[in-house]
Amino acid sequence: MSALVEYLISGVAIGCGFALVGSGFVAIFRVTEVINFAQGTFAVVAGFVAYSGLTSAGAPQGVAEALGVLAAGALGLAFGGAAIGRKHTSPLASLVITLGLAVTAYAGEIAIWGDQPISFSGLQGDFVLAGAHLLRQYLLVIGVALLVLLGLGVFFTRTYLGKGMTACASNRFAAEVVGISVRRMGLLSFALGGLLGGFAGVLLIPIQPLSFNSDIDLAISGFAAAIFGGLRSFEMALVGGLVLGVAESLVGGYVQASYETVVALGGMLLLMLWQARRRVELA
């Protein structure tokens, strides 16, 4: 029983991280139709920057994480500039560009932080729930992720800027007609994607050490979460992240840790195929 609770809670926490990465995919895709392959990079860079902030710069906990998230946002903006800054770049060409950026980022990350996994301790201590000893950090991850996603929802549905971005997603020509610059909104969405990835990074790194090439796993998991809502729905990305996180955690706990990825990837493949099938039927 206590094992189950532990797997569930840790799964939910990890799943919230996936949901954050996935929301980054959604934020960017809705506005630009680009899949940002470098979505995992944002998380890794944010985690690393926070680590440097804590260790080298001596920044207090909280401030260091905030710096990491902001750095990821700035990186998102820069990547967006490369991916969609030039006119007539097709969405798939943009995907290949972001793939290139992610690989280029490896070089920078290795140069600055080396090629070994990095971690730092987040919220200290643990708590007991139904007999299970759980890290307090899990609660922090879940709480912050939900708050961030809630804020994201408010931003898109309640603020004028957010509605402008939704408008680009809804009908890009019409957006141009009313004078919204779709390209500028696209850059903004990349910055937003960077922030979301950054949150995932600084929240997850105390639980799961990150190394420069952790971005692939994060990106794949986030993409799988985002696919739940057809890359367009933040709510479904949250659901997808939670399902994925819990499933991985249960498989890792009860079957074998090394099958986690197979389950996640296989699930994502099946989901995509099912969606493609449904599209055929609906069409």
Partner: peptide
């Protein structure tokens, strides 16, 4: 490091 930089930049 160099090989990653090369691949990435070439692609971009």
């Amino acid at each position: 490091l160099l090989s990653y930089a090369a691949y990435g930049l070439i692609l971009v």
